[in-house]
């Protein structure tokens, strides 16, 4: 209960702001409509209208929840009208990209830590890669890979991996170098091999850094997957859903897709946190 209270307080504050914002943003449209038709209205009428507009500038949470319930329970899981179908498609791309990014990011970090010249030769490129706006190169990557015969989850995963390898490399380089100098001396007194030092000291020391990076990486993997779904006229995925609903001004559906994307990222980050608790476990004092 003591843990839930702060979360609930913030959630309540967001709801209050949201409903207030809905009145503020939707009122001009409503009033404009009523002015032209000469409708008599009270404040209560205005608030009720603002909170239930079909094509609102800012739809309200209860409209979004109703839309989610309708699409989730109204259609089969493999029907594109069901939002969970799109969640599945995007989650697939996100996870494949995340795994790919983790593998690439880890290999780069291990290389950089162990081979001095790699740091000066690779690090600038690693950083430069992230200064390129992903929205600009995502369509190119997808078109080029499409021409090479790669479609579906793979191009999407590439873009996810492109974004997610970066925090892994940066975090893991720092982590692998965080080993206690005394502990390194100790390994030397045992005449431990470099592999033994890596697996028994450097890697375990790096785990807290790695998990912090994994949390960032999994969240931006999702961003990458959604961005990859935007430009190519794809029909499936949260990104495609966002694009089509915004075309047709279906604001409630668009917000549903946004909310679902946020929830998905929450679940993914929570998943990494759960993995962290299992791997690191009770070896650290309880926070």
């Amino acid at each position: 209960m003591t843990r839930a209270l702060p979360v609930l307080t913030v959630a309540l504050a967001i709801l209050v702001l949201w409903y207030a914002g809905a009145i503020l943003l939707n009122a001009p449209q409503v009033l404009d409509l009523w002015d032209r038709s000469g409708t008599q209205w009270s404040t209560i009428d205005l608030i009720r209208a603002c909170w239930n507009m079909e094509r609102a500038v800012l739809p309200t949470p209860h409209q979004i929840v109703a839309d989610l319930i309708r699409t989730i329970f109204g259609y089969a899981l493999d029907n594109p009208r069901n939002i969970l179908f799109h969640v599945g498609v995007t989650a697939g791309g996100t996870l494949v990209g995340f795994v790919l990014g983790t593998v690439v990011g880890t290999l780069l970090a291990v290389g950089i830590v162990h081979i001095r010249t790699l740091e000066s030769s690779l690090m600038p490129w690693v950083i430069a890669s992230q200064t390129v706006p992903i929205l600009a190169i995502a369509p190119m990557i997808i078109v080029i890979l499409g021409n090479m015969g790669f479609t579906g989850v793979f191009p999407k995963a590439i873009i996810s991996a492109y974004l997610s390898f970066f925090p892994i490399t940066i975090g893991l380089v720092k982590g692998l170098r965080s080993a206690d100098p005394l502990a390194l001396d100790l390994m030397r007194t045992y005449s431990a091999t470099p592999a033994q030092v890596f697996w028994r000291l450097r890697m375990p020391s790096a785990l807290p850094f790695l998990f912090a990076s994994l949390k960032v990486a999994v969240a931006i993997s999702l961003v990458g997957a959604i961005v990859a779904e935007l430009p190519t006229g794809s029909v499936a995925g949260i990104g495609a859903r966002l694009l089509t609903t915004s075309y047709y001004g279906q604001m409630v559906q668009m917000w549903s897709a946004l909310v679902v994307a946020a929830l998905l990222s929450l679940v993914l980050v929570w998943g990494v946190g759960a993995a962290q608790r299992i791997v690191i476990g009770q070896s650290r004092p309880p926070a």
């Binding site: 005394l182 390994m187 007194t189 045992y190 033994q196 028994r200 000291l201 690191i280």
Partner: peptide
Amino acid sequence: RAYGYVFQAPALQPWRTVERNVTLPLEI
């Protein structure tokens, strides 16, 4: 392995139990 070295700080591995800290050199 002619000597055992004890440092100023214990330099124990926080992710290992007491027993597995003692057996670290033996594992190696």
